[in-house]
């Protein structure tokens, strides 16, 4: 390291490494990962979400999972929570749907109503 620029470069690279631990959670994507969710392909959905976020270099979204919510026939379920907005639950989210949800809802703030199972205020 020879200069301030070098230090800055290393810092930017390293920040990706600790991003999950330090960032303020802005938008949250929560994937239902109960036994039936996993059977219905929730893991593939989860991986697609992560992959799509990485491809688009979206940094301020936290992806977590939740357990069974008793709505097995609609699995895989994906919740999207944006700050100050109601929680949107999408149903039967295949990897393809997941990628579209990111493109439309996360990036452009357009909820895809067709796939919405429920909307919950005040979270």
């Amino acid at each position: 390291m020879k200069s301030l620029e070098d230090l800055k470069r290393i810092r930017e690279q390293a920040q990706a490494q600790i991003r999950l631990r330090t960032q303020e959670a802005n938008t949250k994507i929560i994937v239902g990962m109960g036994t039936c969710g996993i059977a219905a392909g929730a893991r593939e959905t989860l991986m697609a979400i992560l992959d799509e976020l990485a491809k688009r270099n979206i940094q301020d979204v936290v992806v977590t999972q939740t357990g069974c919510v008793g709505l097995c026939e609609y699995e895989p379920l994906v919740n999207v929570v944006k700050p100050g907005q109601p929680k949107i639950t999408y149903m039967k989210v295949t990897p393809e749907r997941a990628r579209q949800i990111i493109a439309s809802h996360i990036v452009n703030d357009q909820v895809i109503n067709e796939w919405v199972l429920s909307t919950e205020e005040g979270v």
């Binding site: 301030l4 230090l7 290393i10 810092r11 390293a14 490494q17 600790i18 631990r21 330090t22």
Partner: peptide, 21 residues
């Protein structure tokens, strides 16, 4: 509870050595 003490990169990611600079 946030960084690995054996990684200088993680320290740098948390503004490490910026004060020295």
């Amino acid at each position: 509870g946030i960084i690995n003490p054996e990684s200088i990169e993680e320290y740098i990611a948390r503004e490490g050595y910026q004060a020295l600079a």
